[in-house]
Amino acid sequence: MNRVAIYTISLFLLFINQAISQNYNDLKEINSQIWNKFSKSFETVDYQLFESLHSDDLIRVNGGDYKSIRNKEAYLEGYKNRWSNQALRQSISFRFLERVCKDGMASERGIYKFIINPGSENQKLYYGVFHVILRKEDNLWKILIDYDSSENESINEIEILYKEAFALDDFDRNIKKSG
């Protein structure tokens, strides 16, 4: 093989490796700055932490049976009121169908599982689909657009999808899907 071909192949592999590394780094940052804090805010009923994850330009959309569209202030007001009860016990977790990120922008689609009174006999379980658009603002990832739907509470179908979707830290599976 001639030197030009070896050089070209080497550069190609270097650029692919750099693109994959950047994607891994972005996904790790998003996990740390958004999803881990999002879950923690639910578990600790921490309104200020939850509020800090959202862009001032937030657009929040509810689909399915609960159709609405709101700005940040109107959306977060509901959480502020609901989370004033510090005895509230809840958790939320996420699995992903698709994660795409580049140049300080990201689109993440998946399924969430929301549990009220986890581990108790009064436990209530809810599933839904979500799609968020994130952007970096002052070097931090923020939720810019947040859509979710309970899919008209078709829990059994969504539960199966939830188990089949990939985990928060399953970067290899995500990279293979997004190429």
Rank of each mutant, 00 (worst) to 15 (best):
D170V: 05
E98F: 06
E151H: 09
K163T: 14
K136P: 05
I158S: 02
V129W: 07
K163D: 11
L144C: 08
D103W: 08
E153M: 15
D169P: 00
Q123Y: 00
L76A: 04
D46L: 03
I160G: 08
S107G: 10
K67H: 09
N85Q: 07
Q18G: 07
L140R: 13
S32C: 02
A74G: 12
E121D: 10
R173K: 13
A19W: 05
E43Q: 13
L134H: 06
L53V: 02
V45H: 04
N17R: 06
W83Q: 05
G110L: 03
N152E: 14
F42Q: 02
I9G: 07
L76R: 00
Y47R: 00
Y112S: 06
E108K: 04
Y127F: 05
D57V: 00
R3D: 15
D57F: 02
V129G: 14
N156P: 02
L13W: 12
I69W: 00
E77P: 01
G63D: 04
K142F: 04
S178F: 14
R109M: 12
D46T: 06
N152F: 13
F96M: 02
S21D: 12
E108Q: 11
E108V: 13
R3P: 15
G104D: 01
Y24R: 13
D103Y: 10
K40V: 11
G63F: 02
F171W: 09
N2C: 12
N85L: 02
N23T: 15
K113C: 04
T8V: 15
K124Q: 09
N25Y: 10
N23Y: 05
N2V: 05
K177E: 10
I175N: 08
R109L: 09
N81F: 04
E159K: 14
V129P: 00
W141P: 01
S154V: 11
S154R: 15
Y162G: 09
I9F: 09
D65V: 04
L76D: 01
A106S: 08
S55P: 00
A74K: 14
N25D: 12
D57L: 02
N23D: 12
A19Y: 10
I111K: 07
V61A: 13
E164R: 12
Y126S: 09
N23A: 13
L161A: 11
F12N: 06
E157P: 04
R89K: 14
K113W: 02
Y7N: 13
S178D: 15
I92M: 03
Y7R: 14
W141T: 02
Y162R: 08
M105N: 10
Y147Q: 14
Y162T: 14
I69V: 06
I115T: 05
N62C: 07
N152M: 15
D170H: 04
L13G: 11
L88Q: 08
N2L: 07
N71M: 01
N25V: 02
F114Y: 06
R109H: 10
L53P: 00
I145K: 13
F171A: 11
S107F: 09
N17I: 10
D56K: 09
Y47N: 04
K102W: 03
S93R: 09
V4S: 11
D148N: 15
P118W: 01
